[in-house]
Design a protein around this nucleic acid. Structure first.
Length: 128
DNA sequence: GCCAACGTTGGC
DNA sequence: GCCAACGTTGGC
């Protein structure tokens, strides 16, 4: 899940303990929101500023209608942990195994699917 | 600040 | 249903 740190950052999420991920106004992104299950892990990515995956959050409430716009959907997430070392877009592009990530292929999509192998690999990279 | 990529809108 | 025009996102 992408966010501009100037608007809502990982640090804000940690401070809030949990948040409703609203404001999604794209059908593809909405589909991805709806596909998320309680307990699923998600990466939080800072777009524009940093351009890096900074932490892991989890779904604490499955999708329900966006309180700010009925036709759209939101999930509630809570922070799990910050990555020891954030993984930048440049890191991802430079890593063959990750070069096919949606983040690279379709960077504008605000809620993206991450493959299990990609997830695990990024977690591993972040610990080195 | 620029611009490519993408999504949406609206005229036909 | 097509496509041009426009707006937005986000990397550089």
């Amino acid at each position: 899940m992408k966010t501009e740190p100037g608007t809502y950052s990982w640090e804000d999420l940690v401070k809030d303990k949990k948040t409703v991920w609203d404001g999604v106004r794209n059908f593809q992104a909405r589909n991805n929101i709806m596909a998320m299950k309680k307990g699923d892990m998600v990466f939080i990515y800072h777009s524009n500023v940093g351009k890096d995956i900074v932490g892991i959050a989890k779904i604490t409430k499955e999708h329900f209608p966006d309180p700010t716009a009925e036709d759209w959907a939101v999930v509630e997430i809570a922070p799990v942990k910050k990555l020891k070392k954030s993984i930048t877009l440049a890191d991802i592009k430079a890593t063959k195994k990750l070069a096919n990530m949606v983040l690279v292929k379709n960077s504008r999509l605000s809620v993206q699917p991450v493959k299990e192998a990609e997830f695990d690999f990024i977690v591993k990279m972040s610990q080195e």
